[in-house]
Design a protein around this nucleic acid. Structure first.
Lengths: 219, 219
DNA sequence: TGAAAACCATACCGCCGGTACAGTAAATTT
DNA sequence: AAATTTACTGTACCGGCGGTATGGTTTTCA
């Protein structure tokens, strides 16, 4: 039926906001049902216990982010044939998407959950871990594709660079919130974008570029 | 008196571990006192309510991290006169410190708290925000000092690079935990270190470099 | 030795997660 | 239109927890 899905969705929406503001443990079912305008029985009709709420929240979050990444990577590839350029476009789109939210990014559910791991069973944690691995894999694939065209600087493992992007996003969300400045996240994503540019397009003197790869300077 | 401080410290230790594993809201005072071997009255003798526990936890965490950064920046400066080299040394020390923990980094209290902001009063949040600002300031000062000797690449704001380090640490902790691989954090810090190297030591023609004396210690 | 510090014991309140079960209104199927 | 499923409501209850209150006891140090 239709109406059931709507109510369920409303519960998830309210619960997610509460979890991101107070944590899962401090999110009370009573508050959620009060805001949703249903009774406790209604809640337990949709979720047999709190852990299933957690599971549903995580699944929903992962799916939505998958969609976002699908979209933004797709648009990046549409707008340029060059793998570096299209990844840079993707990053800029993400910076706009995540950085221009008026009240700041609502938060990463996975980040909250990893800081409350003892509250969830292995199933929920696995969903989160798999999602992170899959997103990191996307970034790494994009970087590897770039590396087939542009030689990457030595000294940086592309797997680590891919993971670093996830770190920058999650860290950027925390910094934005902690410092009370929503713009930080967008700036951080753009800063990572600059790192990618540096990594693949060495800022050598414009005139006499060396054919041979990279330098000894810092090593 | 002496014994009181010991008990208080034990409470904080146990509470911090619980907060980092389950979140503040899900950390029950009863569990803490059971593990500490005291009664509820004993707990409320030291902390008048749960919010004061949060405040004490945050203060303790900030002080300890201040000490760590003091130490690691100091040792970096001791081992090289060159600002770039000494910062690179500092980063390597941090990577070892945070990456080689057998059970992984226990977690960043500030990260947990920002994801449960509604649970704390402004006082606690301000302590966290000020601490983050001060740490970011340290990184930014180090970068600025480097920039007086080595010209930084264009396109990256040094303030953003400083904040990015905080992002990489907090994000690295989350990734380490979420992926179940403690080594991620250390690798991320080293990856950021490579970014700093890239930023200040352009991979230009190998021949006509470097202007300043480089310390060998760091590598 | 005496005061302050550092607790312990007990009892209590109200909220919350969760269970159980009976009933009902609306949507969908037949 | 009737039957069936879906999507709930209402009520009652349990045990655990945060928090308060109050009074007593031991330990520590000046």
């Amino acid at each position: 039926m239709r109406k059931g899905a709507e109510t369920r969705e409303r519960i998830l929406e309210i619960a997610e906001a509460s979890v991101l503001a107070k944590g899962f443990g401090a999110t009370s079912i009573e508050e959620v049902i009060a805001e949703a305008g249903i009774t406790k029985s209604g809640f337990f009709y949709h979720f047999k216990d709190k852990n299933e709420l957690a599971r549903a929240l995580m699944l929903r979050y992962v799916e939505e982010n998958d969609r976002i990444f699908d979209d933004v990577f797709h648009r990046g590839r549409q707008l340029s044939d060059d793998p570096l350029q299209s990844f840079l476009i993707t990053l800029k789109l993400l910076a706009e998407l995540m950085g221009d939210l008026p009240n700041g990014h609502p938060g990463c559910l996975i980040a909250t959950f990893t800081y409350q791991e003892r509250l969830f069973d292995r199933n929920v944690r696995d969903i989160a871990a798999d999602a992170v691995r899959s997103w990191n894999g996307r970034f790494r694939d994009a970087l590897n594709e770039i590396a087939t065209v542009y030689p990457a600087r030595k000294g940086m493992d592309l797997d680590d660079v891919a993971i670093m992007f996830s770190c920058v996003i999650d860290g950027g969300i925390i910094m934005s919130r902690g410092l009370g400045d929503p713009r930080v996240l967008g700036r951080q994503i753009l800063a990572f974008r600059s790192v990618v540019k540096m990594l693949f397009a060495p800022a050598a003197p414009d005139i006499m570029l060396p054919p041979a790869p990279t330098a000894i300077a810092a090593e």
